[in-house]
Amino acid sequence: MLFFRSEENVEAWCLERGLPKRPVVTLEQQWRLALAWYGDRLSPEAHRPKPAEMRRIFAEIGLEGPFWDPESDAF
């Protein structure tokens, strides 16, 4: 999960490495994901999200489909 200044830079980076371009997440989406995933990390109740919870967290910020499904093999 790397930062890029623009989607054009993502495309150039992937092309140079022969990698497919995968989803690009906005800074706002990434911040919301950080809060949802890690906001309670230092509390006794913290736990790694189970697959259904992961799908819900991703869906709430608009990230849906097989790429974001931890149990999918159809990405």
Partner: peptide, 15 residues
Amino acid sequence: VLGDECVVHYAVPAA
């Protein structure tokens, strides 16, 4: 969150 314009690329599927 504020600052420089940027995006995050996910190269690997969640699974």
